[in-house]
Design a protein around this nucleic acid. Sequence first.
DNA 1: CTATATATATAGACCATCGAGGTATCGAGA
DNA 2: TCTCGATACCTCGATGGTCTATATATATAG
Lengths: 113, 113
Amino acid sequence: MDSQFLGSAVEMMILEVAARGPTYGYEVAQTVCERSGGYFDLKEGSLYPALHRLERRKLLKSFWREVDGRRRKYYELTSTGRAELASRKSAWFKFADGVRGVLGTRREGLAGA
Amino acid sequence: MDSQFLGSAVEMMILEVAARGPTYGYEVAQTVCERSGGYFDLKEGSLYPALHRLERRKLLKSFWREVDGRRRKYYELTSTGRAELASRKSAWFKFADGVRGVLGTRREGLAGA
DNA sequence: CTATATATATAGACCATCGAGGTATCGAGA
DNA sequence: TCTCGATACCTCGATGGTCTATATATATAG
């Protein structure tokens, strides 16, 4: 993406990916990219600091594993992380609703008043 | 709001309010607050710098007017601003769609697959 | 041997948000 | 009269997140 929004949707999306099972940085970036239809192209400079932040705050916990000669740092959601994800999704929907309200996406001029 | 999202939805919402006719800072904050159902409570520290940024980039132009003994700095959308608003709204919808894709808000387990 | 994909990580530039502070007018109530 | 809340503008400094660039290391393809 090239968008100016972002805020902290990044962390929420990382948590969401991790909610489906243990994953690692590179895979997170790919999954987010695919599932967003190519829109989000997480850069290392956003991705890894975010993963470290989430781990520091104990929303994720990590372990190293070697697969095909490459070391991967897997992350999995903690129970705190699961609760936080639910709360952030709820906040996200409220936020998106708020924006929708301001933009007036209420099909004005169609069937309404 | 107390949200971590935000990014630059603020500027888009300011432009949107100005798109409906000349307005001024204080009124922008009130309008955004009302139309978002109380969700967005723009602080002066975000609002005024944003207005100045938008004016500097010539998306808004301003004029002073005195009403009821109080000086107000009115802002109105330029044609560049109008184009920029359209482009940002389009970017916003793509962004929101991207997030929706990652969150998997595709009525999974309801009627879909 | 080199380029690309996989995989992690950090440093520095940049910039927006927010809390807090400041200025000023008006109307209402004590 | 004095004070307080609402109206109305503005700026500074702390904080913190994103991005570009850079670095390391392995496996595979050409």
